[in-house]
């Protein structure tokens, strides 16, 4: 579903990501782990089509992010670590706008908003302006918006930061559901316990280079993910 080949991105002299290659198949929850500034967000933004990369190739369902970005974006949803949403809209206006952009039918959007807003207990707040939302509420709204058009691939940057324990639990269930239906999730996290329990595959990035990737067993063996990560970081 997602194929990253020899991705390289530099900021001035600094190489943020260097020759990174990854493949994510349908049905997989793929965790992306690395220290601050390792290149996780740069990679996710490059995949999302909001950051031009220097070399390499990224394809989503066979479509190139570089040459056919719109086809890729139709199949994807991206949630940044700190979602700045349109604060001049109310929650429902934002969701309706997102549904319009992705061409989701009226009945479908109503049903999905009802379902996901219900799950995140945000229904009553949808008439509020986004500017009145807390960080967690904005994250929940961004999640609902991301799920609205039933994307095949969901990219998330630190999705669990700021969510309450119940919402985190529900999100994990929703992520698994996407994969069970043939979709895929690619997300970055610092919470290694979550990654260990949730992910089918994991990749560890250090200073822009991929240092280890594979199934959870291949990466951690008999050790814990934390000890492997710390050893690699060492």
């Amino acid at each position: 579903m997602l194929k990253i080949e020899h991705l390289t991105k530099t900021y001035g002299e600094k190489k943020a990501v260097e020759d990174l290659s990854l493949t994510i198949a349908p049905g997989e929850i793929y965790g992306f782990i690395g220290h601050n500034g390792a290149g996780k967000t740069t990679t996710l933004k490059s995949v999302a089509g909001i950051l031009r990369f220097d070399s390499g190739e990224i394809t989503v369902d066979g479509f190139s992010v570089r040459t056919e970005p719109l086809e890729c974006k139709k199949r994807m949803a991206y949630i940044p670590d700190n979602p700045d949403l349109y604060d001049f809209m109310t929650g429902i206006q934002f969701l309706n706008f997102t549904a319009d952009i992705f061409g989701v039918g009226a009945k479908e959007r109503e049903a999905r908003i009802e379902e996901y807003a219900g799950i995140f207990e945000l229904t009553g707040d949808l008439a509020q302006p986004v500017s009145a939302y807390s960080h967690g509420m904005k994250q929940k709204l961004a999640m609902i918006a991301a799920w609205l058009h039933a994307p095949r691939l969901i990219l998330m940057d630190e999705p669990f930061v700021g969510l309450d324990p119940k919402a985190s639990h529900l999100l994990k269930g929703m992520m698994r559901q996407v994969c069970d239906q043939g979709g895929a999730i690619f997300f970055s996290t610092h919470v290694l316990e979550v990654a260990e329990k949730l992910c089918d595959k994991v990749a560890i990035i250090k200073s822009g280079r991929l240092v280890r990737a594979g199934t959870m067993d291949e990466v951690k063996g008999d050790s814990s993910l934390e000890s492997v990560f710390l050893e690699l970081e060492g």
């Binding site: 929650g91 429902i92 309706n96 549904a99 319009d100 989701v104 039918g105 009226a106 959007r109 109503e110 908003i113 009802e114 229904t123 009553g124 707040d125 949808l126 008439a127 509020q128």
Partner: peptide
């Protein structure tokens, strides 16, 4: 408070 309603596409 949001009370639901028809959304226009």
């Amino acid at each position: 408070e949001y009370r639901g309603g028809t959304l226009r596409a």
